[in-house]
Design a protein around this nucleic acid. Sequence first.
DNA 1: ACCTGAACACCGTTCAAGT
DNA 2: ACCTGAACACCGTTCAAGT
Lengths: 190, 190
Amino acid sequence: MPTPDRTSLAEIVEAGRELLERDGLDGLTMQAVATRVGVRAPSLYKRVSNRDALVALVADATLRELGDSVDAAAGELERDPRERLREMARAVRAFARRRPVAFRLIFAPGAELRLDPDSLARSSASVVAVSGELAGEEHALDAARTFTAWANGFVSMELAGAFRLGGDVDRAFEFGVERLADAVAASGAR
Amino acid sequence: MPTPDRTSLAEIVEAGRELLERDGLDGLTMQAVATRVGVRAPSLYKRVSNRDALVALVADATLRELGDSVDAAAGELERDPRERLREMARAVRAFARRRPVAFRLIFAPGAELRLDPDSLARSSASVVAVSGELAGEEHALDAARTFTAWANGFVSMELAGAFRLGGDVDRAFEFGVERLADAVAASGAR
DNA sequence: ACCTGAACACCGTTCAAGT
DNA sequence: ACCTGAACACCGTTCAAGT
């Protein structure tokens, strides 16, 4: 005899995202998620195979949101590609500040977490496009990887509190964007 | 009546490092460490205040080792700074492959982990020095941060399996080193 | 068909009792 | 002064029993 559903996968993932940001990865427990969606912990296993799978779903949702933010920042095709690259870098940094815990989860996951290739592809599409404009099509992928590595690395180090030698971190960020744009553009000129 | 020590802090940290690499952060349990050093879990609390503190000691030991590797790769002062920068980047990548779990732990720590400022300073000294040679003293710190962000970002993404769009990752790495060296050197010319 | 309480194995941590 | 067993609170996960 059927019972009406008392929760849903989407609600569970959303609860996971909120708990992750509020209480860290350790605070994302099955019991806390269950309480938040109004159910007992064992019931979660009807929708999710285990905690790691739930963490992966949370990471994937965040990766897609990041991809959308960067896409939006990339803006119109007509604009100066350097300006678009700059805006994309700022969007990554703003996103990391909005969801610091999830950002770390995506870019330095535990060994078990495998990000969905489709989500990865979507999240990098606009970076590859702008990089191609700057560096030329045959260097688009290498240039996109160089830029993405710098942006994620900078933001990760900032979140980790690794910039402790003084100096102005905002200025270092803007310095980096301009140098990266130059570097990538230079490669197109060869 | 005193009892002879059956273990030491150094031995505990070393056991933690081995377990971390072998079984991941989740495998670094107080019980596993205790077994490995031949003691019961409660005894560990004589030398370490709790598990997080032990994890921090493990991270710090790894950060110092990374700093030493990069220093060694920086080599002689007389050599071409671009070549030195290249070797330093390769040293970071080699280190990450040797200790992937610990590398991730350092660059995307959980919220609680604070790296020791002294260890951070030591590990970045030679990068700042070489960057200063390339970019000029007044841009040394910004340039070092740009380079370090790229190197750590690239290696972290590689470890996370984030480069899935095909293409040659080794080539992307070498492309990145050359572009970063150019970018940083260009800033010295202004 | 979904939900629950009970149960199991495991973990971090504390503490009184041993030597 | 260090080490231990026992205990507590907590977690992930399974499963038989309820509706």
